[in-house]
Write a protein that binds this DNA or RNA. Structure first.
Length: 424
DNA sequence: TCTGGGGTCCTAGGACCC
DNA sequence: TCTGGGGTCCTAGGACCC
């Protein structure tokens, strides 16, 4: 039987924080977004306490802390490192693995020749134990014939008591049908807020109803995307394993501000910071970009304020990964979109239209070995700034990303020599 | 006072080409 | 009277995901 497994880290960020704080084993934990704005991860105890995903922190803070909860600002240096450890363990479980997100991976179990529920569950138990023991992260495992069905299995794994955290669906219509009937329609992978409303309105309650729907009609009324979902729910593989993720098509660096900004002189150095960071990512990807976008927006939550949001692009004459090119694009765009009299709450820089740095097409009249081309400046800059920023552009802000509120950040236990955990 | 950040894919429509 | 057919590329907007 040809099966896939979805391995999903449980409450990932909260679990990462717990590795180094075993004293918090039973304590409710939440992790906050950048700027300590809202809740982006919760331990099981916090979910039980009633903290919603995405809840604004200032609204739930008091009740949560009073009840003995522990809060963390996000620490992506830590989560990224723990993630790569989990993925490296999973890579030993299967030859074919697709790292789908920071806390999820699909494994192709083809080589394991699993023929029964028992065999599938045994694999799940083995995998779960190893990751827990070697990295310290609890994982949930859904095993099924298609990706969408592994998501279904993963959802059902939450409710498992016999094999906690593990659920398998074999390639058997009856088996699939039973599982689908237990999954509410909005839990189906690919059904978001809008589709949930439309599908529910047309009488579908669970995944089984969706799987039974008429495919040509689904395609006509909705899209080819939903058609694939329906087929996958029926056990037909439409979404392939993607072991070598395609290069990025877009890079965005954006932040909300701790304090609203209403003048251009304050705003531009900060947007320049975003541009600098975006270029670092671009060079790491080995890509050149042709299009630079800048967006700014006021806070949609302050309904009493006048609202303004906009985005504008600049197309470079020549693809580039040179920070100076991107900064001058920003210098061109920003004054054109900025309006006086608005309190801006967020801004961002977006790079797109990429070409590979090795297949650069020069312009007809470009001087190929001009001073700006083939220069080592950016490489040297990246090298110097590798571990921490030492050299800045004059147009950047002096405070940079440190202007963010991060009141409760944990140490970078695994990625900084100065923040190693200590044992007393 | 205080509400995240970073992505992907699909579709429709317009411009343009032969 | 009567105004084609087939295609690409780009953009904006919508929907979804983690």
């Amino acid at each position: 039987m040809d099966l896939l497994a979805l391995v999903d880290c449980e409450n990932f960020y909260a679990s990462c924080e717990r590795i180094f704080r075993p004293d918090l084993k039973k304590v409710p934990i939440v992790v906050l977004s950048n700027n300590d704005g809202c809740v982006i991860a919760r331990s099981k105890e916090s979910k039980d306490f009633g903290i919603q995903m995405g809840a604004p922190w200032f609204k739930v803070k008091e009740g949560f802390l009073k009840s003995g909860g522990q809060v963390f600002s996000s620490n992506f240096a830590l989560y990224g490192d723990i993630s790569s450890r989990v993925m490296s363990v999973l890579s030993q479980m299967s030859k074919k693995i697709e790292i789908y997100s920071i806390d999820e991976a699909f494994l192709d179990l083809e080589n394991l020749a699993i023929e029964s529920h028992d065999a599938a569950n045994d694999f799940g138990v083995y995998c779960r134990n190893i990751v827990k023991q070697w990295v310290g992260i609890p994982v949930r495992i859904g095993i099924a014939p298609t990706k969408t069905l592994t998501k279904v299995a993963s959802y059902l794994a939450k409710q498992q008591t016999h094999y906690p955290g593990i659920f398998s669906i074999t390639n058997n219509q009856k088996d699939i049908e039973t599982a689908l009937k237990r999954v509410p329609i909005h839990q189906v992978w690919g059904v978001g807020r809008r589709l949930n409303k439309k599908l529910s309105d047309s009488g579908m309650k669970n995944a089984y109803d969706l799987a039974c729907s008429n495919i040509p009609l689904i395609r006509k009324k909705y899209s080819v995307v939903l058609e694939r979902t329906v087929r996958e729910l029926r056990g037909e593989r439409c979404l392939a394993m993607d072991e070598n993720p395609a290069p990025k098509k877009q890079i965005v660096v954006s932040r909300s501000f701790a304090n609203k900004i209403s003048d251009l002189n304050t705003l531009s150095p900060i947007v320049n910071d975003f541009g600098v960071r975006a270029c670092e990512k671009l060079r790491k990807e080995g890509q050149l970009c042709s299009k630079v976008g800048v967006f700014i927006r006021t806070s949609p939550f302050r309904t009493q304020d006048r609202q303004h949001q906009t985005i504008k692009f600049y197309t470079l004459h020549q693809p580039s990964d040179d920070t100076r090119d991107i900064l001058s694009s920003i210098r061109w765009i920003l004054p054109k979109i900025f309006r006086h009299g608005f309190c801006y709450a967020k801004a961002g820089v977006m790079l797109s239209q990429f070409t590979d740095e090795n297949v650069l097409q020069y312009e007809l009249f470009e001087q190929i070995n001009g001073a700006r081309r083939n220069n080592q400046l950016m490489k040297t800059l990246d090298k110097i700034n590798h571990s921490s920023t030492q050299v800045n552009f004059a147009s950047q802000s002096k405070i940079g990303f440190t202007a963010m509120r991060r009141a409760n950040v944990s140490p970078r236990y695994t990625t900084s020599w100065f923040e190693l955990p200590t044992v007393n």
